[in-house]
Computed example of a mutant assay.
Amino acid sequence: MLQTFQIIAVIQGLFLLLYLFKNKNKYQPYNFWFLSALLLSLLFYIVGDDNNNLFLYHYDFFFVDKTLFVTLLFLFLKYFETSKKLNYSIAWYFIPTLIYILIELYETQFIESFWIEVAEHAVYLVCVIYLIFSLIFLKKIKIAKFIKTPFYFLIFSVLITDSLLIVDFLIESDIIVTLNSILIFEISILFYYLTYIFVSDHNFFDLPVTHSKYKNSSLNSKDIDAYKKRIIEAMEVDKLFTNENLSLQSFSETIHIPKHYISEILNIHLATNFQDFINEYRVEEFIKKYSNPENDHYSILGIATSVGFKNKATFNLNFKKFKGISPTEYKQNYLQ
C-alpha cells in the first residue's frame, strides 16, 4: 500500500516541479531555487529510503536523506523575504548533511560503532533546531494561511520523527524503520495536498515574484527598509485601512511615498499586493473588535464597515480568504 502512495506522490511531485520550472521567471531567484530543491529532495526521500526503495531493494539514497530537505526548508523560509544577495556562507548550513553522508559512507564499509551512532543522532538534533527556527520564520512570513499549511505539516511531521529518533537512541529501542515508513507516508500526503490546492487555485505557488518592471529599481536596501517600516506603520499605528475609500493613490499621498515604490515593496518584499495588504489588516482589526465584549451590541456588518469594508459580500470573501472559514464559523470555533 505504501508503494502506491509513493508512486502517486512522485507523479504529483514531478507535476509541481514542472509547473515551477515552466514559470521560473515569475519568482524571486532564491525562492525558486530553494523551493525547487526542497521538492526534489522530498521526491528522492520518498523513493530512496533503504527499507522502502521503489527501484533498488534495500538500497538507501542516503545523500538525499531528511537532513538535506530539512536544511533546504530552513533556508527557504529564512531567506523567503530577503532582497540581499546571498553568498557562499550559506554552505555552512549544509554541514550536518555532509556529516550525515560521511557517516553513511563509513557504515557501508565498517562496523557501526557507538560514537558513530552518537554523531548520527547529533545530526538529528541539529535538524530539530533547524525545524524550530523554521517554525519561527514561517510564523513571521506574511503569506496566506493556506500556503503556510503544508509547510507547518512538513515541519511538525519531521520534528516529531527526529525527536522520536533521538529518544529511540537514548532508550535503545528499535522503531527507526517504522518511523521512516510513517514519514514517507506523511510526505506523500503532503504532495497530495499540494496538488489538490494547486488544482483548486493555480496561484498557490505565486510566492514573491520578480516583476520585470522592477528589475531596474533604484531602491537600495536602506530605502527598502525605511519604506517597508513606514508602510507597515501606516497600517498598524495610523490604521489607514479603516478608510473604505483608501486607494493606492491616496495611500501614496498620505505617507509621501511614490506609488510605484509602494507597489514594489508590497509585491517583492512583502509578498502581497495593495488590496490584499489592506484587507488582511481589516480582517485582523475586525477580529479584535468582534472579540471585545464591549462591541456585542454591534452587528457583524457594523463592525466590518468600521474597519474599512464597504459591504458584506466583500467582507465575507476576504475573511474566508485569510482565515479559511466564515465569520460565523470563526465565532463558533474561537469566541464561544
Rank of each mutant, 00 (worst) to 15 (best):
L2N: 07
Q3M: 08
I8C: 03
A9M: 09
I11N: 11
F15I: 11
L16Y: 02
L17G: 13
L18S: 15
L18P: 08
L18N: 12
Y19F: 09
Y19D: 14
F21G: 00
K22N: 10
N23I: 00
N23H: 04
K24R: 13
N25W: 02
K26W: 10
P29F: 06
A37R: 08
L38C: 11
Y45E: 11
I46H: 03
G48E: 08
D49I: 05
L56F: 15
Y57G: 01
H58M: 15
D60W: 00
V64Y: 12
D65G: 03
L68F: 04
V70E: 09
V70M: 08
L72N: 12
F74P: 01
L77N: 11
T82Q: 01
S83G: 04
S83W: 12
K84L: 01
K84T: 00
K85N: 01
P96I: 06
P96Y: 04
L102H: 00
Q109A: 09
Q109C: 06
S113N: 07
W115N: 11
I116P: 07
V118I: 15
V118C: 04
A119Q: 03
E120T: 13
A122G: 04
Y124A: 05
L125V: 07
C127S: 14
C127V: 05
C127W: 06
S134V: 10
L135W: 06
F137G: 08
L138S: 10
A144I: 14
F146I: 07
I147Y: 04
T149M: 12
L154S: 08
F156V: 15
S157R: 01
D162I: 03
S163G: 13
I166P: 12
V167A: 11
I171D: 09
E172G: 10
N180M: 05
I182K: 05
I182T: 10
L183I: 04
F185D: 01
I187M: 02
I189N: 08
I189A: 06
Y192D: 11
Y192S: 12
Y192M: 08
L194E: 12
T195Q: 07
Y196M: 07
N203C: 09
T210N: 08
T210L: 14
H211G: 07
K215G: 09
N216M: 10
S217Q: 00
K222T: 14
K222I: 13
D223T: 12
A226H: 09
A226K: 04
Y227E: 04
K229A: 15
R230D: 11
M235A: 06
E236W: 02
L240C: 01
N243R: 13
E244C: 14
S247R: 05
S250D: 15
P258N: 05
I265C: 07
H269Y: 14
T272E: 01
N279W: 02
E280S: 07
E280N: 13
F286G: 06
K288T: 12
K288L: 15
E294H: 14
Y298D: 05
S299R: 08
L301D: 12
G302K: 06
S306A: 13
V307T: 11
F309L: 00
K310T: 12
T314F: 04
T314A: 07
K323E: 14
K323L: 10
S326F: 06
T328A: 06
E329V: 10
E329G: 04
K331W: 12
K331V: 11
N333A: 14
Y334T: 03
Q336C: 12
Q336E: 13
